[in-house]
Every structure is written in structure tokens, then in C-alpha cells.
Simulated assay, not measured.
Amino acid sequence: MKRFASIILRLLISGVLLVLLFREHDLFAEIAPRFHALLTNWHWTLAGILCAFLSLFLASVRWHIILRGLVPDLPFGIVLRAELISAFFNISSVGVVGGDTYKIMALSRRLPGQTMPVSVSLVLDHLTGLVSVAALFGVCMLARASHWNEVGYDLRMLITGYGMYVGGALVGLFISWVSFTPNLLAWGRRTFPRTMGHPKLAGLIARLTKIHSVFAVLWQRTLSAAVVSTGMHTAFFLSFYCGLRAVGGVAPLLDVLTAMPIVDAAASLPVSVSGLGVRERTFEALLAGLANVPEAVGVSASLAGWIFSLFWGLVGGVLFLRARHTAIIPPEAVSA
């Protein structure tokens, strides 16, 4: 019942936001004509589709780098296929089952007994994404620091809030890493034997300790994955810049790269279907404030960028329908 209510709520929020957007910017008079420009500006459209694929490809490389620390014989093609199919679930899922769930299920089926390492690798994969996005956002903010006073008050509050969110996440990540080091946990068990020895808490600590130990083994691979992740996010953000140019809009590339981490974070909130409505409103506000892009153009550009990712999601859907759900890696090839 709760899951059904969540789905209905997401559909309702996306529907309301899109209706409000299309009432504010007439769908047929202001938005639809700009989508005709996708054919006229076909080179930008093609570039956007290719950037969206490059983002998925680099996401596969990033995850594969981490996974090979656990499963050295894992072919890259399996990871790329799982990434493409997960894109389909990311755009089609309205419930709690999305791309990450599919990736865990797909690789666990092919790697018997390796569900926990696969799940941990996916956690590390996302953490590298957090670090790389924070680095990109910081570089962009430094590059346009001289224009900070030109940004309106409301937009400054939004950008500052996102900066605090990312910075707080990095600090929390560091504290978590320190908190679950074996020596500190051993001290906690000696000092607070009743609390730390409680069955429920002990089980949680054991799982977190295992995650910590996996990260300790894979930290060098995680750093390499973070470098790849920077390229992955840059390619994804560039797909929206291509979308802006494809619908006839113009804005400095730096402004788009500055806005996109915030747009992506807003679209990732579990309040809508595939970020629809939330992404467009955020992109519209940021590009209007940073680069004076007309609001209707910003909405059209955001939808175009989403369509580029939607294209590869549909390709992933075709692969999923044709997939044979059989293990293609023999258990003896899987390392312990």
C-alpha cells in the first residue's frame, strides 16, 4: 500500500509540475517549435546523443574498475550491458525498483554468492560520483568567482545551499570512514560493551566493518574510478549543453556546467518520475539567473537533454527484453 501511494504521489507531482510549466510556457506556441529545431540543428542533437552514451560508457568503466578488484575476470561487456539496461529502469521506474536494483540483481545472478561485494562496489561507485561532482562544482565556482556579485540573491542562496550540502556530504563521508576503522570499533566494544554488543547494533556494525574493509582494499581503484567519474559527469552535463544549442539557445559552457550539478541533484530526489518537472524547473531558473537564457528555452533544453538520455534508456530496454538471464561466468572463475 505504501509503495502504491509513493508511485501515485510521484506521478502526481510530475504531472502537476509539467502542467504548470506548460501553462506558463505554452506547449504548442513556445516549446514544440523548439523541438523542430532538433532536426535543423542535427549536429548538436547528434553530439548530445553521443555525449549521453559517453556518460554511460564512462559510468561502466568507473564501476568496472572497482568491480575488478573483487572479480578480476569480470568482462567489461557485462558491466556495459548492465549499465545500459539500468538506464532503462532509471527512466521507466516510478517505484523503488530502479537502475541500481537491476545492476545488483544482474551481476549477482552471474556471480553466485557475491551479492554483498557487488552491492558494496555499487556504494563505492556512487561515492566516487559524489567526490567528482563536488570537484567539478568547486572548479566551476572558482572559475566564475569574479561574477558572483552579478548573481541574484535567491540564486545565490540556492547555489550556496547546494555547496553546503555537497561539503557536508564530504565531511560526513570522512567521519564515517574514521568511525568504522577496526581500531576505533575495538575501542568502542571495550568501552561500551553493552551498547556495542547489542544484537541489532552488532549486526549493523559487522556489515559496516565489512564495507570498510572492502574499501580499504580497493581505495586505489576507487581513486582511479573518481578520475573516470569526473569525465563521466562532464559528458553528461555536456549532453544538456548540446540540448540547449540544439533547441536554439545560447549560454556560456561554464554557466551550464555550474548549473548542472544542482539540476542533477534536484532531479535525483525521489519525488517525481525520472526527475520530470523538477529538472526542468531547476534548469530553467538557474540558466535564466546565470546566463539570462529565456525561460521557455531553458525548459526546452532540459527536456532535450533528458530525451538524449531517454534514447539510450530505450536501447537498454530492447537489450533487457532480449536478455537471457543465465549465468555466463562459471562459479570457478569467481574469486572469493
Score class of each variant (00 low, 15 high):
246 A>C: 07
206 A>V: 06
237 F>H: 01
229 S>W: 11
179 S>H: 01
140 C>V: 08
327 A>M: 12
119 S>Y: 10
322 R>L: 14
287 L>Q: 06
306 W>E: 09
191 T>D: 13
176 S>H: 10
260 M>H: 00
79 V>D: 08
120 V>T: 11
162 Y>V: 00
10 R>N: 06
212 H>N: 10
165 Y>R: 05
295 E>W: 02
210 K>W: 08
189 R>G: 03
167 G>T: 03
87 A>L: 15
273 V>N: 06
327 A>N: 13
280 E>Y: 01
75 P>N: 14
94 V>A: 10
23 R>S: 06
60 S>G: 13
290 L>H: 02
86 S>E: 08
144 R>I: 15
255 D>M: 13
163 G>Y: 07
14 S>E: 04
151 V>R: 01
21 L>Y: 07
262 I>W: 02
98 G>K: 01
189 R>F: 07
100 D>I: 01
18 L>R: 08
201 L>H: 03
290 L>K: 03
327 A>G: 11
150 E>A: 06
142 L>I: 15
314 L>M: 10
207 R>M: 08
233 H>K: 01
108 S>N: 07
322 R>V: 10
33 P>A: 14
199 P>R: 08
244 L>N: 08
216 A>D: 12
253 L>T: 13
80 L>W: 07
42 W>P: 04
28 F>D: 09
317 G>Y: 05
96 V>D: 05
239 S>D: 10
93 S>T: 06
260 M>T: 01
